[in-house]
Design a binder for these strands. Structure first.
Length: 107
DNA sequence: ACGTTGACGTACC
DNA sequence: AGGTACGCCAACG
């Protein structure tokens, strides 16, 4: 049974993105580019962002731990933008400053 | 099937 | 240092 009726037509790409992001431990962050590179598509950082935007299971997929190359938080983060994301990260011990995680934040 | 969109990245001014 | 321009990739209408 290959997918009876998936209401979520996740593609392989998305599946891999979610899988990698789900594995990011609390207190640590990864960049879109790193996730993309890990999938084998180093230039697909933008697509990674798209996939996270379509995050099917927010509570299960800690997408707040993904930031851009400069450590910048997501402006369009679900419900609250950077504020909400910053709050989640701070709760895990990640230092945020001016909407960005510190340069030396564990990756 | 094509064009547009978007939670990126890097180079350049 | 900050802002602009262009390139990349996958999903969607």
């Amino acid at each position: 049974m290959t997918k009876p009726h998936a209401h979520r037509p996740s593609t392989d790409f998305e599946t891999r993105v979610y899988r990698i992001v789900s594995a990011i431990p609390a207190g640590r962050v990864m960049t879109y580019g790193q996730v993309a590179a890990r999938i084998g598509r180093p230039a697909a950082a933008r697509a990674v962002g798209q996939a996270l935007h379509r995050n099917p299971d927010p509570p299960r997929i800690p997408c707040h731990r993904v930031v851009d190359a400069r450590g910048g938080l997501s402006q369009s983060f679900a419900f609250g933008g950077k504020t909400a994301q910053a709050r989640l990260l701070r709760a895990e011990g990640v230092r945020i400053r001016a909407g960005r995680v510190y340069p030396s934040s564990p990756r």
